[in-house]
Design a protein around this nucleic acid. Structure first.
Lengths: 128, 128
DNA sequence: CCAACTGTACTAATTATTATAATACAGTTA
DNA sequence: TAACTGTATTATAATAATTAGTACAGTTGG
């Protein structure tokens, strides 16, 4: 289900958070869909349950999933509320990367095209 | 000269690499300008010289600076050659962040504007 | 020529973080 | 009630970041 690089310098739980965010953002995992349990996923990936839980805790903190004691963890039905602070952080990260891309010679048109491509693959906010 | 967050989970040398890349990309540090020496900068920032050198080594590896034994370290006169692999990596990083930005509700227009803004603040490739 | 600067390299010790392991407790459900 | 869920805690091992100290090599101005 996931391709994890154990020997990567990036922590396993961070890799998990990133991959799961992608699945949710691109609606491979639908709203309110149940996620694999901590223990089951740990067994499948042959890593420690604590590592999975750490990823789930982070995803819940960021508003991508919600957990109910005894029932399970589920995809949050709505996108995380537009935290202004969070939005500003992402904006800065994107800007930094855009500058770097332009500096090493990427074409502005290619970057504009990236925005278009992203918009087509991301679930929009139907209601808001 | 730099604001470093010692207690950040992000390693000091990575923070240094990022900040210096910004200075170079936005031409605050001009081509062939000499960088502060490893030992001097270490004293100013009250961190270990080895940490500075690690950052310089990484910057040289990425093509942003060059070092000459006995003379010093200098800003590379040309942007790093457009490594295709490197460009692809950055593209993926940008795409991932763009998707996340759209998902949490940022407007497509704001993201397009970011590209324009970046283009205006980055030194273009005059000769190539 | 030489003192004082530059980059570079190496080893050792310390600290922080990551990941594992082993439990334990609480809530849900068939 | 058994078997599943999330959650929490403690201890341990492994890895990475950082500091510290030392050393060597090349450059340069006096």
């Amino acid at each position: 289900m996931f391709e994890l690089d154990i020997r990567s310098r990036q922590p396993i739980y961070e890799q998990l958070v990133e991959k799961m965010k992608e699945l949710i953002i691109h609606e491979v995992w639908k709203p309110n869909e149940q996620l694999p349990s901590v223990r089951l996923l740990a067994k499948e990936l042959t890593i420690n349950p604590n590592t999975i839980q750490k990823a789930y805790r982070e995803l819940e903190h960021q508003g991508y999933i919600y957990s109910i004691l005894g029932k399970g963890s589920f995809v949050a039905p709505q996108s995380p509320s537009v935290n202004h602070e969070k939005a500003e952080t992402i904006k800065q990260q994107i800007f930094k990367l855009l500058c770097e891309a332009l500096y090493i010679g990427m074409a502005k048109e290619d970057l504009l095209a990236l925005v278009e491509k992203a918009e087509q693959t991301v679930k929009g906010e139907e209601k808001r």
